[in-house]
Amino acid sequence: MDREIVWLSKGTPSTLTYKGKEFKSGIAKNQVTELKVMSKGIIGDDVENHDFHGGSERVICVYAYEHYGFWEKLYQTVLPKAAFGENLTLTGMTEKDVCVGDIFQIGDAIVQVSQGRFPCSTINKYTNIHTLLNKIIERGHTGYFFRVLEEGVIYSNSSIKLLEKHSEEISISTIHHTYFHEKNNIKRIESILSLDVLSDEWMIRMKKLHKSLVEKSI
């Protein structure tokens, strides 16, 4: 499938309601015609909890449009646009298609895949589907992030061009399934740890996993 932009979305934290209780989150995005992408964030876009979201390694959140059909069929519902809080909803770029370190030009911006998304329960609250988080982890339909190498503007009709495929070709899907479902695959973990372009957040997770396996083998 060709790489194309379906939706561009951004937004700042707002107060939402789940089971009669209010919570604040930046997951609810509005569709826009352009995103002004800076090295530390998107103009007009923000997160509520900066300890777990945002930052220079998680500037642009991406979600594959192909997954919407899967989820809507599974849950017999229609999801809102940018239901996963993503900034870019794209075709042809699932977690299996992209690798950590891949570099793309989208509009004027040059971006690099930095890490997979570590999903949290906010998605259950936003969609009102209480099993969604577990299914996301099971399937690996998490989404992922870009860091920004060159700032610029992304328009709704901007083309997506792969500038450089990372030599190791370790996909977002591979890292996700290793961490959540193949925790004893020490060779795979070591290959992931060799990725100097992997975000610090995921590097720390994989190092802890590796350490626990080494300690078990002693």
Rank of each mutant, 00 (worst) to 15 (best):
L88N: 01
L149W: 03
I103M: 04
F118D: 05
D97T: 04
S194V: 05
D200E: 13
K216S: 14
A64K: 00
I129M: 05
E169K: 12
A109M: 04
N124E: 06
P80C: 03
K216W: 04
L198A: 02
V6R: 00
L90Y: 01
S194P: 03
D45Q: 10
V111L: 15
D51R: 11
K21H: 13
F23K: 07
Q105Y: 02
S14C: 12
D97A: 09
I106T: 05
H210I: 01
R58Y: 05
T127F: 09
T142Y: 00
A83L: 08
I106A: 13
R117T: 04
H67P: 04
I204M: 14
T127S: 14
N157L: 10
V32H: 08
Q31I: 15
D108R: 08
K29C: 12
W71Y: 11
Y75A: 06
K183V: 13
V148W: 06
R205M: 10
S25P: 02
E168L: 13
H176V: 04
F118E: 08
I123L: 14
S14E: 12
D51A: 06
S194F: 03
K21A: 15
K165C: 03
R205C: 09
L213F: 06
G41I: 08
T33D: 15
V47A: 09
A109Y: 02
E57A: 15
T94M: 10
I27E: 02
V59Y: 01
I106D: 01
G107A: 07
H130C: 08
G101Q: 09
M38S: 07
G107M: 01
E4V: 13
S167T: 13
Y68C: 10
M206G: 08
A82F: 12
T178A: 14
L163K: 12
Y179D: 00
S217H: 06
R3L: 11
Y65I: 04
Y144H: 02
E169N: 14
D200C: 13
G26K: 02
G152V: 03
E57V: 02
G26I: 02
H141K: 06
T33E: 15
I136E: 07
D2L: 13
D2V: 11
K208C: 06
L133D: 10
G92V: 02
D2A: 13
E168F: 13
I106P: 00
L16M: 07
E169L: 14
S167R: 09
I189V: 06
Y63K: 01
V6L: 13
S217F: 05
F180H: 12
G116D: 00
V197I: 12
D46F: 09
D102F: 05
A28R: 06
F118M: 12
S156G: 14
S212C: 07
K135C: 10
T91W: 00
M203W: 09
M1D: 08
M1I: 11
K208Q: 12
L79T: 12
G55Y: 08
R3M: 15
G92L: 03
T17S: 11
H50I: 15
D2S: 11
H210G: 04
G69K: 14
